Computed example of a mutant assay.
Amino acid sequence: MRTFIAFTMTLCLLGGAWLLQGPAFFWPDRLDPSQGVFLSGLSAQLLGAGLLAIAGLGTMVIARAARGVRGAPTRGWQLRYFLLILLTLGLVSAAFSLGERGPNPDWRTPDNSASTS
């Protein structure tokens, strides 16, 4: 589990740092890849900040586990963790809300010519 958390944190740190530069890219819709959201500038930076916040959440969990603390976390730790989760959700939601929805510029309809006789 620690390896998975470390891998996820590394991806979030690298991806978040890259997205803070504001590169433009298209995020296809999961159910319909011909549609999606174009993220650039501020929306890409908000998504990058959200990824960095996820890495911060992982850091909080790892630091608590490294201290060998048993039992329930303190009320203050839980409050900070909850607020960071809310911040993360807000940043990612704002990124996708500000992104431009539309057709995928790289979408091509599936080729059915092989099925014709």
Score class of each variant (00 low, 15 high):
G50T: 12
Y81Q: 10
W107K: 05
A53T: 13
E100L: 01
L89Y: 12
S93Q: 12
W77G: 02
T109S: 15
R80K: 04
T88C: 09
G48H: 06
T109H: 15
G36S: 02
V92A: 09
D111W: 00
T74N: 02
P103G: 14
Y81K: 10
I5H: 11
A55G: 10
S43I: 02
I54C: 12
I54S: 12
F26K: 06
S43K: 07
R67W: 00
R70V: 05
R75T: 06
L98E: 07
I5M: 13
G48P: 08
A44G: 07
F38V: 05
S117P: 15
R101H: 13
G71H: 08
L86K: 11
A6E: 13
A94I: 03
A114K: 11
I5F: 09
L79R: 11
T3G: 11
A94C: 02
P33F: 00
L98P: 07
P73H: 00
D111Q: 07
L46C: 03
L47R: 05
G36L: 00
L51G: 12
P73S: 01
A63H: 02
L91E: 10
M60E: 08
C12F: 11
Q21T: 14
S97C: 01
L91Y: 05
R30T: 07
M9A: 15
L79V: 05
L47M: 12
R108E: 10
F4N: 14
A72M: 02
F7I: 15
S113A: 12
L98H: 11
L91D: 05
M60Y: 03
L47V: 07
L39H: 08
W107G: 04
E100M: 01
P110L: 11
L14H: 08
T10H: 12
F82H: 06
L91P: 04
A17P: 04
R67E: 01
R30G: 03
G68Y: 00
G16N: 10
A24L: 02
V61E: 14
S97Y: 04
T109F: 07
I5Y: 13
L86H: 07
T109R: 15
W77L: 01
D29F: 00
Q21H: 10
F25N: 07
F82V: 03
L89C: 15
P103S: 13
M60D: 12
V92K: 05
N112L: 14
T116Q: 13
A66H: 05
G50I: 09
F38W: 09
G90E: 12
G41H: 04
N104P: 06
M9Y: 05
S43M: 06
A24P: 06
G58P: 08
N104C: 04
T10E: 14
V92D: 09
D106K: 09
A94T: 09
P110D: 12
P110Q: 13
T59C: 09
G58D: 09
G48I: 05
L98Q: 11
A95D: 02
L13N: 13
G15Y: 04
R67L: 00
S40L: 01
R108M: 10
R75N: 03
G99D: 05
I54R: 09
